[in-house]
Design a protein around this nucleic acid. Structure first.
Lengths: 131, 131
DNA sequence: ACACATCATATTCCTTGTCATTGAATGACG
DNA sequence: CGTCATTCAATGACAAGGAATATGATGTGT
């Protein structure tokens, strides 16, 4: 039977596990964000959207699909795409089949930046996630 | 010797590992945040500061010390404490030895709220972190 | 005692995110 | 068709965080 003391110990461990997750998450995200900002002038969220668009390059990428692949809100995604578009890295293409939807495409500049930034991104992941 | 193909595979795994960390971090943090907000009207960051203050109850807690225990910025901590103070949950005590420093104390109300909120917090951690 | 670097915290300004709402397009069905 | 609900995306109002800076207190060297 579990004593009060057991529960307190267990709680303590849970909290420590959680803090350790938080720390490694923030450490990693922060390091990547700063590096990308410094070298490519784009933030982590922007890179991640760029990365998703690059991934689905073959199958033309709807905004909707992006929303399902990141923890970001729909409106956050919309704004990130705004910035990427203003920076000339992606373009929104209206879709004839369903005119509510949009397709996203990398511009040449976007493709080039992504290629370079991805190298940095993977390197920092490797460094921070160990393995 | 590592082929190009090997590197691509490895990168893919890294990225997937990272996305999985992100998802579980956001899922957990989001769940806790919403629950605390709904039941106790305080956000996750506020609870975490409250939790740290409660922990160091014996040894009176300087702002500085808080900053070292969370991934939050110094200015973020300062603002979170503002809100906690406005909500009547903690109080800032000026420190006679070094008048740059502050000590934080839970008010009665803060101690009570923390006790209840902590139960919810641990339960959600358990649920989300598994174990 | 004075000038100056350093430290703990607060504050300002800007960016980004969320929530709620909107607008437009589509689908479902009598 | 005509209505009504639903879907996709954008927007505006607002809250929260970060960087840089301000403010005030301490320490240090001379």
């Amino acid at each position: 039977m579990a004593t009060t003391r057991d529960r307190q110990l267990h709680d303590r461990q849970l909290v420590e596990q959680w803090r350790s997750i938080q720390n490694s998450y923030f450490r990693t995200a922060g390091a990547i964000d700063r590096a990308l900002e410094a070298k490519f002038d784009i933030g982590l969220n922007e890179f991640e959207i760029l990365d998703l668009v690059a991934e689905s390059e073959e199958s033309a990428c709807r905004m909707k699909a992006l929303g399902e692949r990141t923890p970001m809100t729909q409106s956050a995604v919309s704004k990130v795409v705004d910035r990427l578009e203003k920076a000339g890295l992606v373009s929104r293409q209206t879709c004839v089949d369903d005119r509510r939807s949009l397709f996203l495409e990398l511009t040449e500049e976007g493709r080039a930046l992504h290629a370079n930034a991805a190298v940095e991104h993977r390197a920092l992941l490797k460094e921070n996630l160990g393995s």
